[in-house]
Amino acid sequence: MLKIQDIKGKYIANVLRSYGVLIALIIIIIITSIIETNFFTIGNFINIIRQVSIIGIVACGMTFVIISGAFDLSVGSIVSLSGVVAISTINNGGGEALAIIYALLIGVSVGFVNGILISLINGKMGEAFIITYGTQTVVAALALFASGGLFVAGRIKPGIYKSIGKGIVPIVIFIVIAIGMQFILTKTKFGRQMCFIGGNIEAAKMSGIRVVANRTAYFMISGLLAGFAGIVLTSRVISSNPAGGMGFELDAIAAVVVGGTSLLGGNGSIVKTVLGAIILGVMRNALNVLNITAYPQMMVTGVIIILSVSLDILNRKAKEKELANEKL
């Protein structure tokens, strides 16, 4: 016989586990709002989401790659290179449309190289790690090469390119991308195959999924979004920096992990990643508002990453236990 208290306890535990990240976000917001009145304003929240949107776009692509059981360390340098090329195209009179096309093309091509190499050698996480680190090095070098290692101020006239990073436009773009990606993930064959490949690549192969083509596509999507993030970034700051996207890959992975997508592959969600990115952004902003300097902020970010993965592990263990109990 189940007691009511048991059910209640189970229910609370379930809620905590499933919505732990969301609850943590709300707690951070409440505490900071009480201490600092400047925090809980619409202006500040728009500001936070705008800051989050660039990393968020990159993190959406990263989620696809992680669900399929790999990693993409090259996205940070793709952001840098696509930004450098876009700005220099505009400055040399190539036009905005061409700049955008070049930036996206760079992202897709690097993604293609990553994907085709990793999937052809049937690479697991370790190989993906090394190969995308290799392309990261190469692309970062190309960004330095293309810019001569210098900051370049963009001579951008008011137009499409300039408006991409203005006001709430990056936020709208981020939301549209996230909804589109979530749709692909949950409602299309392509998305379901992604989970299958991440869960068991050998079984996926046996059942006739074209693993090489699919895996290459995930990396191309990740590269494409990183190229797009480069456009948004340079449009916001109206200049390009050959190291502008440095470290974005780690921030993106952090957003995915904090959101609760498991690094083991096989499942995950874009909604979770968006939440993860927002949590990290809110936290950074809260620490800023509370006058905590950059260095302790780094430490807090690290601790939060560890706590959120621990939560994921606890979650999984509890689920396994429940399954075992049900079988009995």
Partner: peptide
């Protein structure tokens, strides 16, 4: 705690 080594050391690296 059985956490993924990549994430753990990524986090401790930052810390």
């Amino acid at each position: 705690v059985k956490l993924n080594a990549f994430v753990v050391t990524l986090a401790t690296m930052t810390i």
